[in-house]
Amino acid sequence: MAYTQLAVLLTSGLLVIIGLFAAIFIDNIIKKVIGISFIEEGVNLFIIAIGYKTGGVVPILIPGMDKSWFATNAAYPLPFGLVLSSIVIGASSLAVMFAIVMVLYKKYGTLKTSVMLADHSHGSVNDE
């Protein structure tokens, strides 16, 4: 299973690319936001994969474990801590996005980005 880390890195790269593609090319705003959540998940997966060690153990020191054996075999725990906060931040920004989408849907009656988030400044000038 030496290829696990490499495969995970590839998966995370694919997720980021799928997310970027969705964020750029899909017109539906909810799908755009889903794509953005895929970007975030891909990046999290990438950072977790950095800390992975083939044949290692979970980085929790259980009483009775040999410390030097633990130091050489445990996975690197720093990235795990980073990902925890990153997940929470991503979820909260997603929540804000959906809240604003709901407000804007009431105004425009559509989920199309090309209508909802187009440039409205000229239109308002001409209407007056």
Partner: peptide, 21 residues
């Protein structure tokens, strides 16, 4: 992804990810 985190030796992150994602 949460289960994959568990396999990648990060059980604490896996719990959070399972709840959130």
């Amino acid at each position: 992804i949460a289960v994959l985190f568990q396999i990648l030796l990060a059980p604490d992150v896996a719990l959070t990810q399972a709840i959130v994602s």
